[in-house]
Structures are given as C-alpha cells and as structure tokens.
C-alpha cells in the first residue's frame, strides 16, 4: 500500500515537470516529435530507477550523519552530507556512462533509439533532482526509493509524451507569430500544470473518504442488522401471538 501511494504521488501529484519544473531543458528541447520524446522518456525512467536506489544506499551508509557507524564506533559522529552533491552527480555521471556501454553491448536496437539521449541525461536536472528529493524527503527504505525513482520517471515520461503530442498537432493551428515555438510551449505547459494541480487532492481526499466510508457503511450495516433483528423479533413475537 505504501508503495502504491508513493508511486501515484510521484507520478501525478509531485510530477517532476509540472510540480517542480525539473528537466525542463530537455523537456522543451526534445519534445518536437513524439517518437524522440518516447525515447528520451524511456531513458529517463531507466536511469532514475537505477540512480535513485543507488544514491539512497550512498546516503544511508556513507553521507548521512552517523551513517559511517558500520565502520566502527569512532565514526558515529561523522556527517558527510555536505558532500552529497558531488557524490550524487558522480554516481549519476558514471551510471549513465555505464548504462550506455551496457545497452550498446547487449541491445544495439535500443541503443540506436536511445543513443543520442543517454549522454544528455547526465545533465538532466530531473535525475539529480530525483536523488536530492529522495534525500530531503527522507524516503525510508531501499524498496520505496526504487518505487520513487520509477514513479518520478514515469511522471516525466507522461509529461514529455503529452507535450510532444500537443506540439505535433499545434502545427496546424494559427498561433500568433511571436508565440510560435517556445512561447506557446511555455504557456501550454503552464496550463497543463494547472490541470495537474487538480491531482493534488487525490491522496488526501482518498484518505478522508476511507476514514469516513467504512464508518458509514458499518453504521448502515449495524442499522440494517438491528432492523432485521427487530423484524425477526417482531415476526417472532407475531408468530408467538
């Protein structure tokens, strides 16, 4: 349940693009065609799913205050969290390079479709942002950090897919010349972000209902039960008479 909740939260409510504006540069630059957008989106999901759990481990066992305690008691007071930027970005850059090599070796077809985008991803703020948010939101376990990585990746994927599809269609519309291209994309993204804000109530609203709903149902059932009991009693008394 925890996983499902975090997943939907990271896909819709805290959507990388619409709520925190991460990865906007590649979002704007690579969203002219749906096919390339899908390629980059898939690569982002993949890299986020690898780097967020990896950086979680780094954070938990090396960087956090007192994380080095597994080395011995005297390391318990060390706080290396000021190094987290450099550690995270180094992990990301290395992982991206590694992923590129592995994909090239084992799946040339996928490599050809992702090829150009993989190196771009190292400097996509969505990737580093994923790790930094993982750290600042204090995600409690490795499994949850994996869910968070995949969820944020899918959220980013959805966003770039949607804007690419809109940009393909918008070519047939009469956009004012000065807004053509970048300007209209900004405004559309703004409108989409307003739309995504409506997901904000999804989880909290659900929780409130969940608390209320069983009560109401239980009450109804109780009432029903008492009613049927009464009826039975009534019937019984009737027959007795």
């Amino acid at each position: 349940m925890e996983h499902v909740e975090l997943f939907f939260k990271s896909v819709f409510i805290d959507n990388m693009v619409f709520a925190t504006f991460l990865g906007m540069c590649s979002y704007l630059a690579v969203s002219k065609k749906v096919s390339t957008a899908v390629g980059l989106g898939a690569a982002v999901i993949f890299v986020l799913a690898v780097t967020v759990p990896l950086n979680w481990l780094l954070d938990q066992y090396i960087l956090k205050e007192g994380a080095l305690v597994w080395l011995g008691e005297e390391f318990a007071s060390y706080d290396l969290s000021f190094l987290s930027f450099i550690m995270f970005i180094a992990t990301i850059a290395t992982m991206v390079q590694l992923v590129e090599i592995i994909v090239e070796k084992f799946s040339p077809a996928l490599y050809n479709s992702l090829g150009i985008f993989l190196p771009l991803i190292a400097v996509n703020c969505a990737i580093l942002g994923g790790s930094l948010f993982m750290q600042s939101r204090e995600i409690p376990s490795l499994g949850l950090s994996l869910t968070y990585g995949i969820g944020s990746g899918i959220g980013w994927f959805l966003a770039i897919l949607a804007i690419a599809a809109i940009r393909e269609k918008i070519r047939y519309s009469a956009v004012p010349p000065a807004l053509r291209g970048l300007g209209i994309t900004f405004i559309i993204t703004g409108l989409m972000a307003i739309g995504f804000m409506s997901f904000g109530g999804m989880l909290t609203g659900g929780d409130e209902k969940k608390e209320e709903a069983p009560k109401v149902e239980a009450q109804l059932e109780k009432e029903k039960a008492t009613e049927t009991e009464k009826e039975i009693v009534a019937v019984n008394t009737n027959t007795d008479q």
């Binding site: 300007g183 405004i187 993204t189």
Partner: peptide, 19 residues
C-alpha cells in the same frame, strides 16, 4: 504564487520580446 504561473509569465516575456 502557484508554480504554473511562472511558466505563463515566462511565456508572456517571450511573446513580448519576440514581438
């Protein structure tokens, strides 16, 4: 103050600049 308006404000700046 909400984040979507930042996008729209930048969009308008681009519009003004390009006009």
């Amino acid at each position: 103050l909400l984040s979507p308006m930042a996008l729209i404000v930048v969009g308008i700046i681009i519009w003004v600049q390009r006009s």
